[in-house]
Simulated assay, not measured.
Amino acid sequence: MTPAAPPTNDDLAQGKAYTGQGVTVYYDARRCVHVANCVRGLPEVFRPKERPWIQAENAGAQAVAAVVRTCPTGALHYVLDSQEAERPQEPTEVRALPDGPLVLRGNLVLDTPAGQVRDVRAALCRCGQSSNKPYCDGTHSKVGWTSSQE
């Protein structure tokens, strides 16, 4: 079986765009479960109490890209000017978070109600209650779901 080609810029450029010097950050609010790696990693760029909340011009492109890569859900992506898309992690990693989603990193092809999605990071629902399946939307914590219920 031939592995899928890595995602392209068009695959990853989903959600609202925020442009800075040399980088564009894309934010898909439906996939965000507020882990806040971005806010802790670059508080001068990711400012949830301000509008716009992403101020990509406040840091260098490489620093912004490095923090975006820490987003476990794939709610954040980036495209560097004049470069190819974010590269998938190799080998692909699948990790079940205790009492939370299944976190994937790698060259992903996901079947969703809207069709196939190519991505490099995703947090998938384990509780079965998400309103944004297959993605986690944080409902597990609202309904009291725990890993022991699997």
Results as ranks from 00 to 15, higher is better:
83 Q>T: 15
144 G>Q: 04
66 A>P: 01
90 E>Y: 04
67 V>H: 05
71 C>V: 10
104 L>C: 01
80 L>M: 14
86 E>M: 13
146 T>C: 10
100 G>E: 01
67 V>A: 01
148 S>Q: 09
99 D>F: 09
97 L>H: 08
134 P>A: 14
108 L>E: 05
70 T>F: 00
71 C>H: 06
86 E>D: 11
111 D>I: 10
57 E>S: 15
100 G>Q: 03
124 L>Q: 07
82 S>H: 15
145 W>Q: 03
113 P>V: 11
133 K>G: 05
60 G>Q: 00
126 R>N: 03
97 L>N: 09
66 A>R: 06
57 E>M: 14
62 Q>N: 10
106 G>N: 12
116 Q>N: 10
102 L>A: 10
105 R>H: 06
120 V>M: 06
81 D>P: 10
135 Y>F: 12
127 C>G: 04
64 V>F: 00
106 G>K: 13
101 P>I: 02
91 P>W: 08
78 Y>E: 03
122 A>V: 08
75 A>P: 04
107 N>V: 13
107 N>A: 14
146 T>A: 05
66 A>C: 00
94 V>D: 04
60 G>R: 00
131 S>W: 04
122 A>N: 04
145 W>G: 04
83 Q>P: 02
146 T>P: 09
56 A>C: 08
78 Y>P: 01
145 W>D: 02
71 C>W: 02
113 P>R: 15
59 A>M: 04
126 R>S: 01
69 R>I: 03
81 D>N: 13
82 S>Q: 15
128 G>S: 14
83 Q>C: 13
81 D>C: 05
78 Y>L: 10
84 E>S: 12
59 A>L: 01
76 L>G: 03
107 N>H: 11
112 T>Q: 14
72 P>C: 07
71 C>Q: 06
91 P>F: 07
110 L>K: 08
123 A>Y: 03
94 V>P: 06
145 W>H: 03
61 A>L: 00
114 A>N: 10
121 R>S: 03
116 Q>D: 04
141 S>H: 11
128 G>L: 14
88 P>C: 14
109 V>E: 05
63 A>R: 10
124 L>T: 05
138 G>Q: 15
87 R>L: 05
107 N>D: 12
57 E>F: 11
145 W>T: 02
130 S>F: 15
62 Q>K: 07
62 Q>E: 13
91 P>N: 06
112 T>Y: 12
78 Y>R: 09
133 K>V: 04
100 G>N: 11
87 R>C: 00
